[in-house]
Design a protein around this nucleic acid. Structure first.
Lengths: 356, 356
DNA sequence: TTGTAAGCGTTATCAC
DNA sequence: GTGATAACGCTTACAA
């Protein structure tokens, strides 16, 4: 029954439920019951079975169980390639947080990469439609969809994270970016700033829309015109944050009327931007205040230490898993909702009142 | 046959091989053959089957196949919690690189976290012995082992990455850290440096041993005594790299005879160390040269830009996957070997000749 | 409380 | 070249 070629009669691995049953002197179904519903089996029998299982080093076969019950215990996280980089450590944090919560719920985490090609889309759809996964957490704005199959109607519970996809009918765990930017911009205005420089990731991207929107709201609230803010970037992905900052520094140098405050949409942009403009003699925060996004730990050790709006990644991960497991538990999906986790400004020396 | 409650007679998902067979007017086994061994079935039949499959949006069930063939197509990567942080982006890169190679080989990547508790060990062992995974890539020095079951004799192909575990019989993909440190130390000596400061991660850790060993080799080669180098750190995990650097700056301040060159074993350490000693008036590289490990992109934008020894993570990931897939292909495991990928020094302004 | 037996959706071994 | 049919290892009615 044991398919391994045993050395010296030992059973180092590969014991089956049938092996356990035989050793314990019971039927195979009793073993199954003892392991799954310990309450529904005689205590003495259960003890025998547990002893046998332990002696054989028995581990239930997950695929067999999965096939039988028609469910897998794997959750996939769909990551766009563009999120993979950056000093912000967002991805590692997300993975750690999600994986931890998932394991407590008895699930495993599988990684799925969603690039801008059909191959990766097809791959994800195979996972979804092939019964391999039980649910998905997606950090991309695009739902895979290739020749007829679409993740949207795969029947899988899906939770979006970082991006608001409630319009597409997905539970979404997001941060209050708009509000956070509005507040920090308002604070900059209060300090006396009137001309702003905004470093953007991909134009039209959810984060860009929300964050830039926040800037505009603050300007409007203070009676300032849209012209008070200049944009830089918009072409490159967040993945190329450092490049965006370098380019923005060039753009900044060309401006005749210099802004006095910079709002960067990632720490990477801020870091490379600051590095480059300092080299050109710009003093921070003397000549220019800087605030950015993500809350990368490294910001504390920049000179000057950078103010940054922290993304509460761990909480978001937990929330996403909670929502997903809820959805898996229910028969019907709850109405799409936004779960907003508040992000907070970490205030450091890179912000000050503008010179005179 | 389709278990989904279809809306309006459509079959949005969940088609089985039997459905395809019926639609194509052939036996189910023919469908299986057509999909797996297209060569062994009549071209016309195959066309019919493919058409039917496509029309139904058929996706083979991975668990059923896995159960039947006795193999899963999932590879797990075992990550220690301590690797999850740091501006170095090592983890995201590793994951991306490994996942990419894996997918090309038809495999999927599952994440397994190995913390210092029995729970996570048991979890990994369940994955290994439960037939869920086909192989493992491990980035931890410790092989899970709980009550009898041990990953080492799970029969799974395992490849170690970053750490040399060839002694434990594992194929290991590593970098030439010792040599790299020896070379850079020798270069520092050549520049005139005679007193060194070494920032360590956990003492006795593989990386610490190799890298510190490299320093000593260079000293010896130049006829300098072991006393030429002072150590700091050794208690905290790499996860706390920034803290190590901060503490090292305190240690440094207390030294009466100041070293003129710092060798840090991670960029995080170097970054926070530099930040703190600069604040105390130490000039870099004027008073102190600095070199560190990992090759974090952010180092380019520090002031001064930091020299760092780049870990060739992508190549390591590819190599690890290649070795793993080879091992899966063979019946017998190849003899344990080290695969050494060369890391390279990225030389920037943080290194100079010592004053006077 | 326990045992028997029927499947889960594939693949593989046979005949035909 | 194609079609029955028996597994793969488990769970779950249902019977005893």
């Amino acid at each position: 029954m044991n398919k391994n070629k045993d050395v010296a009669g030992e059973e180092p691995s590969g014991a089956l439920m049938a092996d356990v049953a035989r050793l314990a002197g019971v039927a195979i179904s009793t073993v199954s019951r003892a392991l799954a519903n310990p309450g529904r089996v005689n205590e003495k029998t259960r003890a025998k079975i547990n002893a046998a299982a332990r002696q054989l080093g028995y581990t239930p076969n997950a695929m067999a169980r999965g096939l039988r019950v028609g469910k897998s215990n794997i959750i996939m996280i769909i990551l766009p390639g563009s999120l993979y980089y950056g000093a912000s450590q967002i991805i590692p944090h997300v993975l750690q947080s999600i994986n931890k919560s998932l394991i407590q719920g008895g699930y495993n985490l599988m990684i799925a990469n969603l690039d801008r090609d059909e191959i990766s889309e097809r791959h994800i759809l195979d996972l979804a439609f092939g019964g391999s996964v039980r649910g998905a957490i997606i950090l991309s704005s695009k739902l895979p969809e290739v020749d007829g199959r679409s993740l949207a109607n795969s029947g899988l519970p899906i939770v979006s994270m970082l991006l608001d996809m409630s319009d597409a009918g997905l539970q979404s765990v997001i941060t209050n970016d708009r509000e956070a930017v509005r507040d920090v911009t308002a604070e900059l205005i209060r300090l006396g700033h009137r001309r702003f420089f905004y470093l953007a990731g991909p134009e039209g991207n959810y984060h860009d829309v929300e964050r830039y929107g926040g800037v505009l709201e603050a300007l409007e609230g203070a009676g300032l015109s849209e012209g008070s803010v200049r944009r830089s970037g918009g072409h490159l992905d967040y993945q190329h944050g450092f490049d965006i900052g370098v380019q923005a520094a060039d753009d900044f140098a060309k401006l005749t009327e210099k802004p006095t405050a910079v709002i960067a949409t990632s720490d990477d942009m801020a870091i490379s931007f600051v590095s480059r403009v300092q080299r050109r003699g710009v003093s921070i925060p003397g000549d220019l205040s800087v605030v950015s996004f993500d809350g990368s730990p490294v910001c504390e050790f920049c000179s000057p230490p950078l103010s940054t709006i922290k993304q509460p990644v761990e909480e978001m991960g937990r929330a996403a898993v909670d929502l997903l497991l809820d959805a898996i538990g229910q028969r019907e999906n709850a109405a799409a909702v936004r779960t907003v986790i508040r992000s907070s400004l970490i205030s450091r020396e890179s912000i000050a009142a503008p010179k005179s």
